[in-house]
Simulated assay, not measured.
Amino acid sequence: MLQLDDLTLSQDGFMLALSAKVEAGARVAVLGPSGSGKSTLLSLIAGFARPDRGRILWDDQDITDAPVAARPVSILFQDGNLFPHLSVFDNVALGLRPDLRLSREERDRVGQSLTDVGLAGFGERRPATLSGGQQARVGLARMLLRDRPLALLDEPFAALDPGLRAEMLALVKALSELRGLTILMACHDLRDAERLCDRLWLLDDGQKILDVPIAGLRNAPPDGMSAWL
């Protein structure tokens, strides 16, 4: 379980302040307008930023001060962070070893991760030769290869057209269910949240103003949701 205990960060006139819990295996969409604190929240959990106050706990272990590499977290950004001079295989392998000195077993794991996202046989290609959807799959393969129980998705498919975005979200949902991942996904589209997640947090100006199940949300929307329906 992920627990955010009185988490607070003040930065450039903006303040994020919230407490929350995410059960293991849950998939939570963090919805809100630009500047509401979605990416800031993910950065705190990932360790890219430090809170002014509060704690981040995973399975009752305090990871607030843990180094980024030591956290039970993988993160997928919108641009996928692919290196154009490296092959698809090596881009994925970076999730295991930054020096790319892989054992035979590790090379097999990279190949399997590419197969899991539908990119078997693409290992020798360069990112520039891939479509946007295929590049997104490379980033996903690298995230999955890290084999961390908590996956943070920072609007990773926002640049894709609606059909490809729906396809990628369906793939993430299937793989997360297979692996038992806990997911937090920052997004600005309720339809994306509905495709992947079972719970929704609505952020506004750094505050969590709603925490509700997604099932049936459109049929009985709570106060504050009308602008998103």
Rank of each mutant, 00 (worst) to 15 (best):
L7M: 06
A66Y: 09
S74K: 12
L82N: 02
L202A: 08
A136C: 08
D65N: 14
L200C: 13
D108Q: 15
H85A: 14
L7I: 10
S74Y: 12
N81P: 00
V212A: 07
P72G: 05
L164V: 05
L96I: 11
S226V: 09
T8P: 01
T8I: 14
F83H: 01
D52A: 10
L114W: 11
D79T: 07
N91G: 02
K38V: 04
A66E: 06
P72I: 06
R137F: 09
V30D: 07
K173T: 14
G123F: 07
R126I: 03
V138P: 02
L114G: 03
V92W: 11
T115V: 13
S131D: 07
L76V: 15
D189Q: 14
E155H: 06
A20I: 01
R191W: 01
T40G: 03
P72M: 05
D79N: 15
L31C: 02
N81A: 15
D79H: 13
D60Q: 15
L86A: 08
G13Q: 01
S74E: 09
D12C: 08
P33T: 12
S176H: 09
L229K: 02
S131I: 04
A166I: 00
A24E: 15
R104Q: 12
G133Y: 09
P162R: 15
A136H: 09
V138C: 06
P162K: 14
A17C: 08
S103Y: 04
V88M: 06
E167N: 14
G37P: 00
E155P: 04
L140W: 10
S39P: 06
L150N: 12
S131G: 07
T115Y: 05
S19R: 10
V117Y: 11
T40I: 13
T64H: 08
A174F: 03
L41C: 08
R199I: 00
G180V: 08
S36M: 10
Q207V: 11
L203Q: 02
Q134M: 03
G95H: 11
S34P: 03
L153F: 14
A220Y: 01
L160Y: 08
M1H: 13
L144T: 10
L184I: 02
D161Y: 10
L119V: 10
R55F: 00
L96E: 00
T182S: 14
R107Q: 15
M15R: 15
A158Y: 05
N91Y: 03
R125Q: 12
L57C: 14
S74T: 14
L9K: 09
R165Y: 07
D60L: 05
A193H: 04
G118N: 10
N91E: 09
P213H: 03
R165P: 02
R104G: 01
L82Q: 01
L9I: 12
L76A: 07
P51A: 11
G206N: 09
G118R: 10
C187R: 01
C187G: 08
K21W: 01
L178C: 13
G35L: 05
L114R: 08
G133N: 07
P72H: 06
F14P: 02
G121Q: 12
L181H: 12
D205T: 13
R50V: 13
M168D: 09
A151R: 01
M143F: 00
R191Y: 04
D211T: 04
L152F: 05
L203W: 09
I45R: 04
L16W: 05
